Computed example of a mutant assay.
Amino acid sequence: MAETSTVISDGMAEVLRLLRLDGPGDPAPSWARALGAEGVALTLLVGAGRTPEPLWCHPELSARFEELQFTLGEGPGPEAIRTGSPVLEPDLARVRSERWPALLPTAWELGVYGVCCFPLGIGAIRVGVLTVLCDGDRRMSEQQYADATALAAALTGALLNGDRPRNRSGDGGGGALGAPGSPSGLHRAAVHQATGMISVQLGVSMEEALLRLRAHAYGHERPLGQVAKDVVARRLRFKKALDDDPDGDPDGDLNDDGSGPHSPDGGRG
């Protein structure tokens, strides 16, 4: 595949002509059609912790894959954000298992066989990532690459120029770089709240608290968002010492007084 292509497709040209992040409807289906992709997702980085927040995903498979990457903290999306360069893996079967050891087998089970991610940003500035699920050919053509690169550049420009995309609730609220302004407008608001609660419970940094939350979600085979909601609802509590945990749970995360509600299904999905 060539690295550059000078001409975008007519379909992508029309998408870019009509691109308005604050317009009505969900633009992701039209992006997927123009790219000839199995799915498309736009994820923004929000808050002081630069947490990836899904804005638009199509179809549901894209949303599930984004949630998987967020739960595990690994995959082409996080790598693209970290490096600032596109991560092109149209055939995940060819990726070394040690690169994304937890993600690869689960992605295959979901039905995701190829992913290409394009970071949104300029230089050291990162505002998000455009994720493209590849089609059954397990490849990305020069035309698809050119179209995806053009879309990523247009989205970057729109966000940096102050275009404020609607959040998932459709209320039009937005903060800097298009991030939803209030916690209630965030798809992952519970994760932000739970991370803060775990930070207090364990006396650790927010970064360490998020790692603990992810470890519990992965170890119990549950989506991160579901585990976070249990923490916020006080059905699940993280504790400082394993010795104090009557359940012998390696994360030290279930209620320690035996009087409150426990994690549903014993903490397992």
Rank of each mutant, 00 (worst) to 15 (best):
P180F: 01
A124T: 11
G11S: 14
E60A: 13
S259C: 06
R96P: 06
K239S: 15
L210T: 05
W108T: 14
R33E: 13
L160Q: 01
A217C: 07
D249Y: 01
R50V: 03
R168H: 11
G47T: 03
M206P: 07
G260H: 03
H216K: 15
V46Q: 09
Y145H: 15
R222A: 12
S182V: 02
D230V: 01
L19P: 10
L177H: 09
L19I: 12
G185P: 03
G84H: 11
Q143F: 10
A93H: 06
L21V: 06
E109N: 13
E60H: 10
P180Y: 00
D91S: 12
P105H: 11
S5G: 14
D22F: 09
N255H: 05
L224H: 08
S97Y: 09
G111C: 04
P52Q: 07
W31P: 00
A217Q: 06
G84P: 10
T156E: 00
V204F: 08
V46D: 09
A152E: 06
A124S: 14
L236F: 05
G157A: 13
R20K: 08
R138C: 13
R235L: 05
L44N: 08
P250G: 05
T106C: 08
H192M: 14
G266F: 02
D256C: 05
T156H: 03
L19V: 12
T156L: 04
A189G: 15
E67S: 13
R214V: 03
R99V: 13
L42P: 01
A37V: 04
A233C: 00
D135K: 15
N255Q: 10
L21T: 06
L130C: 04
D249G: 00
R17W: 10
V112H: 06
R96F: 05
V191P: 03
L213H: 01
E207Y: 10
R222F: 00
R33Q: 14
V132W: 02
F70M: 07
L61A: 07
F118T: 15
C57H: 01
L68V: 13
A63F: 00
L159V: 05
D247N: 10
G173I: 09
A63S: 02
P24L: 01
P59Q: 07
A158V: 03
L110S: 08
L155V: 12
A107T: 07
G75K: 05
P29S: 04
M12S: 13
V129H: 03
E38P: 11
L159Y: 03
G84W: 07
V129C: 10
H216C: 11
T43A: 07
Q193H: 15
T106W: 05
P78N: 11
L133P: 03
H58F: 05
M1E: 05
V112G: 11
V191N: 06
V191D: 04
A209M: 06
V231T: 04
F118I: 15
R235T: 09
P165Y: 00
S205D: 13
R138V: 10
D243R: 12
T51E: 15
D249L: 00
P264A: 01
E3W: 03
P76Y: 13
G248N: 05
A124I: 10
L224P: 08
V87F: 00
L211I: 14
G196I: 11
A233K: 02
G114K: 06
V112N: 08
L160C: 01
D249M: 01
A217D: 09
